[in-house]
Design a protein around this nucleic acid. Sequence first.
DNA 1: CCTCCACTGGAAGATCGGGAAG
DNA 2: CTTCCCGATCTTCCAGTGGAGG
Length: 358
Amino acid sequence: MSRKNGNSTVPLMHWFVVPFRMITDARVLEPEFVPQEVAYRDAEIDALASALDPITRGETPEPVFLFGPSGTGKTCIAKYALDRLHETIIDLSHQYVNCWGDYTRYKTLYRVLEGVDKALDVHRQSTPTDALLDRVYEYDGPPYVVILDEVDQLADVDVLYDLYRAHNLSMVLIANREEDVFVQLDERLQSRLQSATRIRFDRYEMDALVGILRDRVRWGLREDAVSDKILRRIADAAAGDARIAIGILRRAAQHATEQELETVTERIVDSAVPKAKTELTQKNIEKLNDDQRVLYEIISDHGEIDPPDLYNEYRNRVDDSKTDRMLRYYLQKMQHYNLIVADGENRGRTYRVVDSEK
DNA sequence: CCTCCACTGGAAGATCGGGAAG
DNA sequence: CTTCCCGATCTTCCAGTGGAGG
């Protein structure tokens, strides 16, 4: 992480070429970074801490739900609260699982076992899901808290029921919208989760966002590199989304460094904004397979296209074409990834790419 | 209004890839 | 080596749906 610049035997000429190092710690600008101190979310932290408080008495808390738009600190607060809890309870296990990537029952259970080192010999593919579940139920170690992020992305919500029944295991469930989670649950699980604590996260106010950015500058950049005026400009462009705001700051700092500027300018920020906003989309496109990418390109080319034209165009462009049913699975997946939108049902349906602002 | 029919998406089964057991 | 088993992927089949056009 830290660069070795203390090699005194060799003169490092390029340090003189770049006399001003703007970024002092790049980690604090990464999306996953969890600060030691968290501001502006005291109420939510307190609510989460008290929901998890039964652990300190040796009891298993009911599941806790964190709801709110992206970039409002849900993941960060969940991780932060567990780190703090770990300081008071030495004997505590916890694991973070992102259901967006590990969306099957099998993968989720695998991650859960991984968190308590019970998955070491499960690398073989011939271990059935039921065997993983048995291991989860056999767990008899210290209290175990599992953070399930993007829980609305689970293909099979049964895993929530699996984990609910597990001994000594509690869940922190994170999703954007409450409805997306609850409509999927069967009545049995719904009634059991009725009493669960729900904590809402709203978009950050301007001042809060500026404060968050100012902290990041203090921890990771040369303090005088970014003025408050610039921070306000970044916060304004991020519209209450801290993830985007920090993304803009990171890109702006990188661009400024490349151009050997001593401070981040308005021009730099303005060029970083669109890139930071489409960063997630770009990452998702990279995850698509060849067939999916062809579909995405066709939809992108046409702006708006109905299913028959889409399927035909796809078959024109691809040699070894998949069945239409498979294309529908791909299209569902791409909606899942927030890359495309389907308007209408059945015959009236058309597909278009997200944010084709025209 | 009614009927037709093209598209959707659930269900079930086949196939793939890879690891383990014999 | 072959055989078996797993999850993931893909195909096949088809009931349901709702728009188009009598």
